[in-house]
Structures are given as C-alpha cells and as structure tokens.
Design a protein around this nucleic acid. Sequence first.
DNA 1: GTTCTAGAAC
DNA 2: GTTCTAGAAC
Length: 256
Amino acid sequence: MSHLKILQSYAKRSPESFPASILFGHSAKNITIFDGFPKSKFHFLVLPRASETDLSLSDLGSLHALLKADKSKAKEVVAALADDARGVRGDIEREMVKHYGFKWDVWTGFHAAPSMVHLHLHVLSADLCSDKLKHKKHYNSFHPKLGFFLHLDDVLSWFDAEPTYYEHMVSMKKLHLLIVLKEGLTCFHCYKEMKNIPILKDHLQEEWDKLATKASRKRKRKGESADVAVPEEKGLSDQEKTLKRAKSEATENVEA
DNA sequence: GTTCTAGAAC
DNA sequence: GTTCTAGAAC
C-alpha cells in the first residue's frame, strides 16, 4: 500500500478490522486513528468513513475536493468530524492531566495542502514537542498562525460566510501554501525567530517546560499535591502502558 | 515517510 | 571542521 493512499484504505475498512495500535475509536460516520508520525505529545486523525456518505471517494479526497462538491453535504461531513474531534479533545485532555498533571491547548484543524489522499482532521496537543518533528515543513504545517494549518472553527465559519468568501477559500492557491512551508522558524509561543530546527526544538521544549512549571505552582497555591505521575514507563498504569505501546506500534503505519 | 549527500552556514 | 538543510532517489 502506498503511503499516499493509506488513509483512503483505512476509510474503506470496517472499524472492527483494525488492530488497536492503529484505531483509537470510531463513530457511525468517522474513525479516529493514532497519527503514525505524531508531531506533538498527542496527535490523532479523524477520517470520514467512505461507506457512511453518498459523496464519492474522490469528493472525500481532500478538503479542497470536498468544498468543491456539494456545499451542504460538505458541511455535514465537516460537522460530523467536528463532533468526533470534540470527543478526542476530551480524551487528550484527560490523558494530559493523568500523565502531566495539567492541561494545555489542543489544536483541531486541516492541512491546507495535505500530502496524503483522503480527508483527515488533525487533533493534536499544542506543543509540537516530538521526536517525529524533524523538518521545517513539519513545523510550519502545524504553526497555528501561518495559514497552512486551517483551524476547524475557521473552516466551519466559511459555510456561513458570504458566498464570495467561501469561493475564495475554496480556490486558495496551492503555490502560496507551499511557499508558507518554507518560511522562517518562528516560535508559536513567543514569536521569536529560531535559527534552525535543533534550536527551535530545544526552545519549544523550554516553552512547554514553562507551562508545566506554571501549572505546578498553581496547583501548589491551591493546596493540591504538586506531585504528578512522571511520564515514564514505571509510573504508568497498565492501561496507560497499552496506550503508549499502541502509539509506538502505530508509528509503523500512518501519515506522510 | 527515510536515506543519502552536496553544499551552505557557522 | 562540524552542523544543518534540502533535494533526489527509493
């Protein structure tokens, strides 16, 4: 199976046929999988199931293709993805508290020019701290302010905006989007420009450490225990180990 | 996606 | 000299 079409093949499969290492959950309309190359501490993909719509597989090929098809059907598909994404976000937040003792942001959105076929909604923690984040295009494709990562709420708002605006967003130029990926490396927390990827990654870790420290102080002030289960294997319950193992096994499969 | 590598950056 | 990027090949 080519990497480019792997998500399309998942969209055609019955949820029961997946190993637990790939499938995180499913609903009537969608499946949620572990991103095979998570770019944050938590990173999932929500995909519309091919059998649960009368749109063609090619209409479901990408957000661009979907929005060019029937507008009201497109809205239904995106709204259904949004429903599942809310649940995934809640799951991520519970895991955040369990593993790290605090919650931070979760981003939900589409890549404007994805590299793989079949619509997929990213749901990921807002840290971009991951071994799998290696290149400038990885980082810029999730940077929340660059415009390549299309936040779900923005996409939903297009449906209710002026038709001309909708048309404008649907016809967004791919060339411009790809140029965005080559722009400089600006920290999404503090907007400082970083010289290169290794420096950026160290900096992102420091920014996340600051969030963790702040949350820990806050817990102390409130008189709660400041001690948190450390994110190490020995500190994890069996269920958490399973989730962690599932995540690392999922690495063999998804996302380009 | 990964690996390899030329050449740029430092 | 070493580190890093980015394009080609797979």
